[in-house]
Simulated assay, not measured.
Amino acid sequence: MPILLTGADGYVGWPTALRIADRTDDRVVMVDDFSRRGWVEEVGSVSATPVADIDTRLTAAREVLGLQNLSFVQGDLTEKSFVDELLTVHEPDTVVHVAAQPSAPYSQINGERANYTQHNNMQSTRNLLWGLEEAGLTDTHFIETTTTGVYGAPNFPIPEGGATMENGGERDEVPFPAMAGSWYHLTKAHDAANVRLAHSQFGIPTSDVRTAIVYGTETEETREDDRLKTRFDFDYYFGTVTHRFCAQAVAGYPVTVYGKGEQRKPFVSLEDAVEGLARLALADPDDRPGDHVVYNQVTRAISIVEVAETIAETGADFDLDVDVEHFENPRDEDETHKMVIEHDRYDDLIGEQRQSFSEGVTDIFETLVRHRETVTAYEDRFLPSVLADGAE
């Protein structure tokens, strides 16, 4: 039975498609409309790693990895007619929904981009869920990557999905309340609620994979050939904190930590994130969850200052003299927040962690040193004020 994977041209989507296709003989149908390339271009930036076009990627997957079961469909998931035809033609047994506008800063630029982000992300998910119901595919396993950002930063251990509420002496399990801190993160909180509702109303088996901040440049499959590389964004809008810090180091800038930097954030390597999604996608129908299950796709919480110090230490191995500098924090946040987040279900899913944070940083430097000229050519993209002006 076919496996449908959305967002297949993206940072996580592309290597996940390779991993899944390498472990099954079933057809893996990839879907994307290449929006991510356009969003990054819009803010005046570029992927540090050259990203091959989809035809070149598919050719490399066949030649290098021997994958004959990958196919690609270009289309916009916000168009219900396209989604309905996609599901009717391919009748997937599993949907891995990775497609989204993923940047909180991009969603905060102005009202137009906030509206776009919310429409794009939530409309795509609704179309897929209703499409499964209307096509009679309610046995299809629906897997979506939401984000640990839906939890916010509460001062208590974050559960894996639900919470226990007590009132008037009565107790019950309820969904964790949306505590998102951006217009993007709120889209994933709404998605999480809609996925839960689709399971309740339609009986669709659903897995809500709340993914932490992802770091790294390589997976087992992408190492094999440059044509198989996934994208690597390092600008303020689309580059995550680890990626921006590494790019700053390669460009000769100090790593800029806001305030004390002792606040901890949840992280997971690209290799571990891909493994978790692949295992869910390939679970035997008799073994996969028939319920609605939440996974916190996290390996551990790391403080921002530890991120910076690890980058400085690893940078020395690449003959980089990396300074860590603290600046006044422009954000209203607890600079000492000790995030504790449960991830037992995710640990059970993947077993042992496949890549440590320091190993991931080493991968990043090996990649960025090769593409130093690209990073330095776009070094002004590190700064939000420049990007905001350029994006208008």
Rank of each mutant, 00 (worst) to 15 (best):
H185I: 04
T140E: 07
D321L: 01
Q118R: 13
Q108N: 01
I364E: 08
I304R: 09
A163N: 02
H292G: 00
G13Y: 09
H190A: 13
A281G: 12
A60H: 07
D226K: 01
V95I: 15
S303N: 07
A21G: 15
P289A: 11
H343S: 15
A377M: 10
L197A: 08
V322H: 10
L5S: 06
V12M: 05
G239E: 01
A312Q: 06
L368N: 06
V28T: 12
N296T: 10
N155E: 14
L132W: 15
D22Y: 09
R27N: 03
A283M: 15
E144S: 14
H199P: 02
Q297S: 11
E112H: 07
E134T: 11
L5T: 05
S71H: 03
E224S: 12
A193S: 13
F318K: 02
D33S: 01
M1N: 01
A281D: 06
K80I: 11
V293A: 07
V195H: 02
L86W: 10
D286I: 03
L77M: 09
G276S: 04
V89G: 00
P285C: 07
E221K: 04
G161M: 11
H337N: 13
A52Q: 12
V257I: 15
H292N: 07
P50W: 14
F238W: 05
R370C: 08
A316F: 08
A198C: 09
V241Y: 09
H337A: 15
R171D: 09
R244L: 13
V255G: 02
M122Y: 03
V375T: 02
S124Q: 05
W130A: 04
S269K: 00
D380Q: 13
A178Q: 00
V73I: 15
G7V: 12
Y236W: 15
R381Q: 09
S35Q: 08
T242K: 03
T49Q: 08
E224C: 05
T299D: 15
E366I: 01
K80E: 14
S35L: 15
V298Q: 11
M1I: 04
I143W: 00
D284T: 06
S207T: 15
N115F: 06
V96P: 11
